[in-house]
Design a binder for these strands. Structure first.
Lengths: 114, 114
DNA sequence: TGTTTATATGAGCATACATACATATAACGC
DNA sequence: GCGTTATATGTATGTATGCTCATATAAACA
């Protein structure tokens, strides 16, 4: 309903700042590891601590960051809290970046293989 | 050789750190403004300074960052240096994030209104 | 009530990075 | 050569953010 087709968006500096902040949420290895661990479905904090090898404090902090960015949902059940990916565009984002990096490295390995 | 299907990737912590680094390049408003200005095609540093309103020093530094991340190409012609987007996946990345943000702010969206 | 378990948070520290000022390099014209 | 223009870089500084230790909350259970 908004942009019909491939016309490039015209974005304000304010919009750019918002987009940058969203990217910055994804710009941390531990947060990406948490998202990756959640690709298979929702998990409790303890499970995520075990899967990622982080400390409980740190994992909790990053889960808060991801939740505030509306990338995760939070569900409390008894003593445990379960987190799950709420924004499916994250899968596509990671696929895009992975593909781009693969191309970049295949070019570099061409350079290195001499 | 590479996974052809839509099966979720299995990524090492090292891979995750690389992906995070790529996201961090996009996690700065001024760099996004530079990329946005380059959506229409290659431009000189001076043009980018005028378009973004940044200082020459700062624009030059960010262009270096983007070039080292293989997102821009650099072409020198006389006194001027022209930069252009070299990784087309950047367009899709920004489209994905913009779309996700539009949904998130669909009610109070004034920033994205046009 | 008190204890245990699961998760969150306050405070302090360390590091990374964006920005600005001044200066350096490089290419052009005279 | 000299000066001018376009771009890059060394250094310093302020700010943001990730990490950790200790402690706080909250729910379950005896």
């Amino acid at each position: 309903m908004v942009s019909p087709k491939k016309t490039p968006r015209v974005l304000s500096a304010d919009a750019m700042a918002l987009i940058a902040r969203r990217f910055s949420v994804l710009a941390e290895p531990m947060r990406l590891r948490l998202l990756h661990a959640l690709f298979a479905g929702e998990k409790s904090v303890n499970e995520l601590v075990a899967l990622t090898g982080g400390t409980q404090t740190n994992v909790s902090r990053h889960l808060q960051t991801l939740t505030q960015a509306h990338m995760l949902t939070r569900r409390k059940e008894g003593l445990q809290v379960f987190y799950a990916i709420s924004d499916p565009s994250i899968f596509q984002l990671c696929e895009l970046v992975c593909g781009s990096l693969e191309k970049q490295f295949s070019r570099q390995s061409d350079v290195f293989a001499r």
